[in-house]
Design a binder for these strands. Structure first.
Lengths: 239, 239
DNA sequence: TAAACTATTACGAAGCGTGAAGGTGG
DNA sequence: TCCACCTTCACGCTTCGTAATAGTTT
């Protein structure tokens, strides 16, 4: 059993914050001593870690509390989603760094703010919140996954397999770009009109979300997902 | 000349935020029309970009305003510092991702919160604020750099040169770890007692700050800085 | 004249930092 | 008895979102 100070030292968060988290019911002490002291245990530490991961991803504390409170909340699934979200953040950071470097030595395009865009992350964050929020939107999400018949999936993986064979080329090479165009038309034909923006979002999902990445790499060989993302960037990049 | 809506569409930030930035003097319109409308120009866009980079790094808006207001503010130097800071953020994210993965498939150590730690970033952020804040701390920082005589610098680069020759080995290999130990003792002898934590911070600086990285790579060959950081992680990692 | 802008003003919420004032433990 | 710890208010700050109300442009 640890006091607030010990918890603070272990985790690096402030005592005030622990008080606050208690106050809003986000992290209640395991026990209250006779003297009124807050006492925490190992379960508290684990919960705190879960909280910190979500906080890192700028989830509002109230929603974190709500999610952790759900009976069907699954720490492992949460962790897996958190990893995906962190990968997305990292990719955004990399785009920002690239933009900054370009601005520094080329001057760059004044009106280019694309790198600041956040909606891929926000979208997946929303889905995650809905995962433990039981909204209608999640129902729709569940269904969508099921409605993709296996033959459609396989056809799409065929495109990635072809793309995988071109990994040695530059992502911007014409033969590669052809495949991206084919991918786009395939999506338009089978799912929804695939604008460049949507395509770009998908590209990021391919590398950030493990489920996508594994499937794609299985179809086209190690690194195909990453290659696809770069090719998509090139496709969408210079208008 | 653009209206608020046009600016919002271009940059992706909300109209309310533009109003607010005007209100606190962070981003004044280039001009106010007769009708009272806010009108922005290209300079506004560039300033906004600067602001967004700093905001991305969680600088308080007031401090951003103060810095941009300094007469000796240098956009290029700012950009370069922003890049360093973003690199640091990215590294932290990677550590967090690694921690999450480990937790997911090993269970991991419950009490391990190191990856959440932020002080390397915070420290450099502070220095950046002080760079355009003209505080005493910055004077001290300036002096410190000058006091490192060239012979001390060269001796240290010698260690990195030796480290560079071991790049083919694993970062955790004994012969590599010896060099890290030597580095640590060298720092202790010439600068200040080098605890593991300080060493770890330095390791991150080596790859995040271009000035460090270039010097180190010049001494030990391309990739030496990155290799040094990994070796330092290994050195500090498992206690 | 309606639709689509613009403006100002104001209330509110999130996530703590920072005391103040007072009880506990070794 | 002292010092370092704990407690509970309580106020304030930042960064906008979200109306509400009213004038402007097309």
């Amino acid at each position: 059993m640890w006091t607030v100070r010990a918890m603070s030292a272990l985790s690096g968060i402030s005592i005030r914050t622990l008080h606050y988290y208690d106050e809003i019911g986000l992290l209640r002490p395991a026990e209250i001593g006779e003297n009124g002291y807050r006492l925490y245990d190992e379960a508290s530490l684990m919960r705190l870690k879960s909280i910190l991961f979500f906080r890192e991803l700028q989830f509002p504390l109230k929603e974190i509390a709500a999610m952790l409170g759900q009976e069907d909340f699954d720490p492992r699934e949460a962790l897996s989603r958190q990893i995906t979200l962190m990968e997305m953040k990292r990719q955004r950071l990399e785009r920002l760094i690239a933009l900054a470097r370009k601005t520094l030595d080329e001057g760059g395009n004044i009106m280019d703010f694309k790198a600041f865009d956040d909606h891929v992350f926000q979208q997946y964050a929303k889905e995650t919140k809905e995962r433990w929020g039981h909204t209608e939107a999640y129902q729709a999400y569940e269904k969508r996954g099921a409605s993709d018949g296996p033959e459609v999936q396989q056809a799409m993986m065929g495109i990635f397999a072809q793309l995988g064979e071109l990994k040695a080329l530059s992502p911007a090479a014409p033969r590669v770009q052809e495949k991206i165009e084919a991918l786009r038309q395939f999506i338009t034909a089978h799912f929804y009109p695939c604008t460049k923006e949507i395509l770009q979002s998908l590209g990021q999902m391919y590398t950030a979300d493990e489920r996508f990445r594994k499937n794609i790499d299985a179809a086209g060989g190690e690194g195909t997902a990453a290659f696809a993302e770069k090719a998509i960037q090139a496709y969408c990049g210079e208008k």
